[in-house]
Amino acid sequence: MRYEGMIAETVGLRGHGGVEVASYTARPLGPGPFPGLVVVHHAPGWDDWCKEVTRRFAHRGYAATCPNLYAREGEGDADDIGARVRAAGGVPDDQVMGDLQAATDFLRAQAYSSGTVGVIGFCSGGRHTYLAACTLEGLTAAVDCWGGGVVVDDPSQITPKRPVAPVDLTSKLKVPLLGIFGNEDKNPTPDQVDRTEAALKKAGKDYAFHRYDGAGHAFVWTVRPSYRLDQALDAWGKIDDFLARHLS
């Protein structure tokens, strides 16, 4: 009999500025070695779906951790916390990068670590993933799922919290990048994805983009009407193949 099991728990990270940040962490039972994966939650917050995704990766052999990027807003229902962050215009990029660096370092420091750590993010987390792949230390591969705002067309979107258009950091991209996008998305639009791809190509980076007709934003978010079954199943296959190739 093949035995399957995992442990899923909250751990405390020392995040940006030394603040304690809860991180939902799941890994297979056993000594490892397990490749690591940082899961970057979407704009609505550190919710049940993001934790399900974290467990999904543990089920597939990864030690995955999803830090609560909204931890500084306190405890409470994820939707209430997400509403507070939305009203505040999101969370600052430098704070998020500090928290994601802490998550990366945490996974690398564990006795079960295989020594590789990827990062995958959804929605705003896709944009954070692009930034992380260009700026953080210790990553091995990155997956940007429909990150909006990688290309910035409206100058008012460059703010103290988001001072840089991530696409402008493309020359600094350190790891192979997988991008997953819906062609009916408005943020990023297909044209913006084209321009991100052009920047990656011009910089000679290792990347692969997969773009789906009949899908818009967040088409693997199972509990929302944006979910598209065929496109989601194909995208998960692409993600699993990419991570196995680069992290195993």
């Binding site: 209430d80 997400g82 509403a83 939305r86 929302r224 009407p225 944006s226």
Partner: peptide, 29 residues
């Protein structure tokens, strides 16, 4: 706070969201 963004519960891709907020920061959404 009045927003137009992903809803948390309504079965819509995007929604007009109204958070009515009291002095403690608690909301009726």
């Amino acid at each position: 706070h009045v927003s137009f963004d992903h809803p948390q519960h309504a079965p819509l891709d995007h929604a007009l969201e109204i958070d009515l907020i009291d002095g403690s920061g608690a909301r009726v959404a």
